[in-house]
């Protein structure tokens, strides 16, 4: 057979492409659920990391996640994971930004006052190992614990990631990674922009009282099924926060 004729070439190319396409589609179908489970588990592990849970020896992180995370709230398309640790609520915000080579992301856990950082966890797609990639390591992440995202006036100003020796006006700061200026700036920018996107959530004072909806958009709407003359819960100072799970 003449393997150089036009007809043969076209038929050959078509057959090869179809075989490959069918094969890849099949593999993708078969492995899809497993991959999605991996992605979900990875996200859960990252959230647990932001909540300062040590999962290195945890046999079943998914069960731990289920036991800690009580609720997920949607704020203008951004998720807030509501966790409960030792009776105290923590709010985990999802972060997304840009590093040097690719995207970076992370989770920021806030205390119930929606001001103090409880824990932080970062991830990256392709930062330089040993430099920018160090944002995922504990020494960098632990710097954020206990910092405040608000200034003295209560405005959301985020936390700056700065070279040691420089100071930011009116906001708290952590040390940047040496040799990874652009990734560090990326983390700083990511925190600022993402926190401002969560402003609707962060600026609503938490609700209290039994008969109220969880605070998504507004505060303290009466929950469905509540008696009309039920005592309307009032907005409490953030320190009195109580998450209503019923």
């Amino acid at each position: 057979m003449n393997t150089n004729s036009n007809t043969y070439t076209i038929v050959y190319a078509t057959v090869v492409v179809i075989i490959v396409a069918v094969l890849l589609a099949l593999v993708s179908q078969v492995l899809g659920p497993r991959q999605q489970a991996n992605v979900r588990l990875d996200q859960q592990k990252q959230i647990l990391g932001a909540l300062k849970q040590d999962i290195s020896n945890c046999a079943d992180p998914a069960a731990l996640y289920d036991s800690l995370i009580k609720d997920t709230i949607d704020v203008n398309g951004h998720p807030v994971f509501v966790a409960e640790i030792e009776g105290d609520p923590k709010f985990v915000l999802k972060l997304k930004g840009a590093g040097l080579w690719g995207g970076i992301g992370g989770y920021l856990a806030l205390d119930k006052d929606k001001n103090t950082i409880y824990g932080a966890n970062f991830n990256h797609e392709s930062e330089t190992p040993g430099l920018g990639a160090l944002i995922v390591e504990l020494p960098f992440r632990q710097q954020f614990e206990g910092k405040h995202i608000r200034n003295a006036e209560g405005e959301i100003v985020s936390v700056a990631v700065l070279k040691a020796g420089t100071t930011a006006e009116g906001q708290e700061q952590v040390d940047a990674l040496s040799g990874a200026t652009i990734t560090s700036t990326g983390v700083s920018d990511m925190l600022r922009t993402n926190l401002s996107e969560y402003a609707d959530f962060l600026n609503v004072k938490s609700c209290c009282g039994k008969c109220c909806k969880k605070q998504a958009e507004g505060c303290c709407q009466a929950q469905e099924g509540c008696a009309e003359n039920a005592e309307q819960p009032e907005c409490a100072q953030p320190t009195d926060t109580q998450i209503v799970n019923e």
Binding site: N4, T9, Y12
Partner: peptide, 13 residues
């Protein structure tokens, strides 16, 4: 069986 003119493409696929 590979047609010479598209061999690089077939290899790539």
């Amino acid at each position: 069986t590979i047609p010479m003119r598209i061999r690089i493409i077939v290899q790539l696929v």
